[in-house]
Design a protein around this nucleic acid. Structure first.
Length: 103
DNA sequence: TAGATGACTAATA
DNA sequence: CTATTAGCCATCT
């Protein structure tokens, strides 16, 4: 499938361990920041769970998604911590520290 | 088949 | 400064 979804997954897969990316950054990589919405749906659908580290994708505040596809937000939090990322009590990460930008 | 919705963000009023 | 509108695309009803 050569649609926007594949592009999204391609970018997400490029996120190194211990780093996170925002929807906006991914969308900007695709050439249009407004695609951030599509990214959200793409990960919500989550057809490639296991291949796509959707837990490394956070919103612009660094906050984790309220409805994690696999389990609860707790699961995402656990996975991030497992990679060495410190998640705050309010389920947010330090973007200045963990934000990964491709360009 | 057509319309509404959603893990969002940035720009404008 | 805060609040609202616009824009994207796939899936759901």
């Amino acid at each position: 499938m050569n649609n926007i979804f594949e592009e999204i997954y391609k970018i997400v897969k490029l996120i190194p361990k211990g780093k996170v990316m925002t929807y906006g950054d991914i969308a900007r990589c695709l050439g249009n920041v407004r695609l951030s919405r599509v990214i959200g749906y793409a990960l919500h659908s989550n057809p490639y769970f296991g291949d796509v580290p959707c837990h490394r994708v956070v919103n612009r505040f660094g906050g984790l998604a309220p409805n994690f596809a696999f389990g609860k937000i707790n699961a995402q939090k656990q996975m991030l911590e497992n990679e060495g990322i410190v998640v705050r009590k309010d389920n947010t990460v330090d973007l200045e520290k963990y934000r990964y930008t491709i360009n």
